[in-house]
């Protein structure tokens, strides 16, 4: 008589609490997901100007306060290029990684709330040897630094 309940408990064992609650109809799974939008326009751009425009306009100033770390000069595998960026600009709001010669220039955008250190590392794909830009937004202004990374093997897999 309690079989259905038992099955539900059994099958729920491996699921996360959120999924379980969602399955039970208690919470809307969409409500648990990030509410912020994904900036589609910014991820379809091919040059710095249009990327900046899509991100909200501004002219980036080259800055020695934006620094690459743990980022190689030569990447053997373009599919997995480690990139670390730190910003010493006060009130850093976001850090973006742009790869000039990729099909779409913007690779990733990290929004940094107060209390989070303005330093991130990740891994990106690079089609070919290219300049990589670290673009920082702080106090409404943009700061940029660039670094050329040589790619020995392209990262597009095709």
């Amino acid at each position: 008589m309690d079989r259905h309940r038992r099955q539900a408990l059994k099958s729920g064992g491996g699921l996360s609490l959120v999924a379980l609650l969602a399955a039970a109809g208690w919470i809307d799974p969409a409500a648990a997901a990030p509410a912020e939008a994904w900036n589609k326009a910014a991820f379809q751009t091919h040059d710095m100007d249009s990327t900046l425009k899509a991100l909200g306009d501004g002219t980036p100033v080259p800055s020695a306060n934006v620094v690459f770390f743990s980022t190689p000069d030569i990447a053997e595998n373009g599919a997995v290029v480690p990139v670390g960026i730190t910003s010493k600009v006060p009130n850093t709001e976001s850090i973006a990684i742009l790869v000039e010669k990729n099909p779409n220039m913007l690779a990733a955008l990290f929004e940094i709330p107060t209390g989070t250190e303005p330093a991130i590392t990740t891994r990106v794909k690079m089609r070919e040897t290219s300049n990589v830009y670290a673009l920082v937004k702080a106090g409404g202004n943009y700061y940029v630094t660039s670094k050329e990374i040589k790619v020995t093997l392209g990262g597009c897999g095709g």
């Binding site: 912020e36 990729n102 690779a107 209390g115 990740t122």
Partner: peptide
């Protein structure tokens, strides 16, 4: 503490 937007250029099995 962090919000990220990613495009297709982030590597497979992202870190």
């Amino acid at each position: 503490v962090l919000y990220a937007q990613w495009g297709t250029a982030v590597s497979k099995n992202p870190f």
